[in-house]
């Protein structure tokens, strides 16, 4: 206990969010770019590889991209471009063919929050007491698991759902299952039909918004979520 508190206190000082830079690859074909649109952040690198044709890359007039124009590029050549321009929408062109254009979307520098195991805690909607969601992030497999303990839409009977999904930055969409047919503390077989989907978007370690879509019940809605406890984990540097 004492040791835990001390460790937590030490980590408060070092709560720094780091975001890994990403390398994006774009293939240049004879008359098009693949993919046609790249989403990147400052600090990322874009690697253009010429597969077919002879190209000279430039930015669309009035929207300069640092590092362009390029020299003449032939099949096998590659051009590395460091992303250093401000957030916004840019276009790169090739002189190989009129209208050969790709998009570069430079996003804000960092996502609001990236899901990690600091979000593993109890969460609830302040406007709907007596029910809630428990999230657990599993680093080994990059899976977000959610347990939702609530009630049926109309009957008021207890309902619990469990689901999992793969997060991307602060967001994950989970397929939610509703287990039926079991017996408390017994090994009777349990069916797990799909109940619907839950998308959750974490804006911080302490706030999230979830949207549910119950395909069978044809009900959907939005859940504002506050973290209920274990807030000290948010201050740890993972």
């Amino acid at each position: 206990m004492t040791r835990l508190r001390l460790v937590t206190a030490l980590f408060v000082v070092a709560a720094v969010q780091t975001v890994a830079a990403t390398t994006h690859e774009v293939s240049i074909l004879s008359n098009r770019f693949l993919p046609e649109v790249v989403e990147a952040r400052a600090g990322d690198t874009i690697v253009f590889r010429v597969v077919e044709g002879s190209h000279r890359l430039s930015a669309q007039e009035g929207l300069a991209i640092s590092g362009l124009p390029s020299g003449r590029l032939s099949p096998g050549d590659q051009l590395e471009l460091a992303v250093i321009d401000p957030p916004g929408e840019y276009f790169f062109l090739s002189d190989a063919e009129a209208g050969m254009r790709g998009g570069l979307q430079i996003l804000d520098e960092a996502p609001a929050y990236t899901i990690d195991n600091r979000i593993s805690a109890g969460w609830f909607n302040p406007a709907a007491a007596g029910q809630g969601l428990l999230f657990e992030y599993v680093p080994a497999t990059n899976v977000l698991v959610a347990y939702w303990f609530t009630f049926d839409f109309s009957s008021g009977e207890q309902l619990w759902l469990v689901g999992s999904g793969t997060p991307s930055e602060g967001r994950a969409t989970l397929e939610m299952l509703s287990a039926t047919g079991g017996v408390m503390n017994a090994s009777n077989p349990v069916d797990k039909p799909v109940w619907g989907e839950l998308t959750v978007d974490f804006s911080s370690c302490e706030r999230a918004t979830a949207w549910f879509n119950a395909s069978g019940a044809q009900q959907s809605g939005q859940i504002p979520l506050d973290r209920l406890y274990l807030t000290s984990l948010c201050e740890q540097d993972l």
């Binding site: 206990m1 835990l4 508190r5 937590t8 109890g122 428990l134 347990y147 303990f149 009977e157 207890q158 309902l159 619990w160 469990v162 509703s178 287990a179 039926t180 047919g181 079991g182 017996v183 408390m184 503390n185 017994a186 009777n188 349990v190 406890y229 274990l230 807030t231 000290s232």
Partner: peptide
């Protein structure tokens, strides 16, 4: 540890079976 508490959620079924 922040509040010296333990929270447990038990997801199961009725002892006689059937409902969640």
């Amino acid at each position: 540890p922040d509040s010296n508490q333990v929270f447990v959620a038990w997801f199961t079924f009725a002892p006689e079976g059937g409902s969640q």
